[in-house]
Design a protein around this nucleic acid. Structure first.
Lengths: 126, 126
DNA sequence: GTGTATGCAAAGCTTTTGCATAGGT
DNA sequence: ACCTATGCAAAAGCTTTGCATACAC
């Protein structure tokens, strides 16, 4: 089980080349530069496999839909710029250690999305 | 512009009766108890209108997809229980005031999703 | 009466799946 | 040679849209 195909290798390479959350369309676009015949269904199937392997993580972007990013980059959050529509990784954690949820709730994980304007878009506005 | 139809009234009522984030299927199900003929397209159109009016807010649930909830409940976050699949409102904000994003980034809003096990599901497990 | 919102059905998206075959082992 | 992963196309969700008609005003 688990063959090393040129398609899967290409998809992994795409994520290594672009260290930011990618949408399916982007994975397909960049992947086709490496394997011209790359099919959409193959991308979906490999993304699922890579998630099961723990190599990728799916994040649900409130506006852009499904995005995928590599695991093992350390805990971080995401910032979405409404100016340029890009999604940035924000390293570190801005959560208070305690009082995240009422007593009795066991918090195992969390996902934080920040919205606003990124530095380069702030410049353009001013 | 902006007619008060029995459908729109019913949809608003559904959200007042269930003070938690609802999916389209739930809005449709509960709405049909009030207006039997209620159509899916009507629900979608009214949800959009209510969002534009600032009466509703769409939240993007990482697992369940689109959920909708009333605005004006004060700032809060969401907790998703993997035991019972329910989404809870967690009042207050668990974010540190500073250091949410690097210098230069302007944070205007944020959305936090917590994952784990809710009190009643913890009991069942123990 | 006028014109907007509804219901229905069709069309757009995104994602999944069935099936023959290419290709990794 | 075997059998999994691919490519293609069809299908299955979810959401939007066109159009005639009902109904809010």
């Amino acid at each position: 089980m688990g063959r090393i195909t040129i398609q899967k290798t290409a998809i992994e390479k795409v994520f290594r080349q672009h260290e930011r959350p990618l949408g399916i369309d982007e994975v397909l676009k960049y992947g086709r530069k490496l394997v011209a015949s790359l099919n959409q269904a193959t991308v979906y199937r490999n993304l699922k496999t890579l998630i099961d392997d723990g190599w990728l993580k799916r994040i649900s972007h409130p506006i852009l839909g499904s995005l995928y990013e590599r695991t093992g980059k350390g805990h971080h959050h995401h910032f979405y710029c409404r100016g340029c529509n890009r999604t940035f990784d924000i390293s570190g954690c801005a959560l208070k250690e305690e009082h995240t949820a009422p007593d009795g709730f066991i918090v195992e994980d969390h996902e934080l999305f920040l919205f606003g304007v990124c530095p380069s878009c702030v410049e353009k506005t001013t």
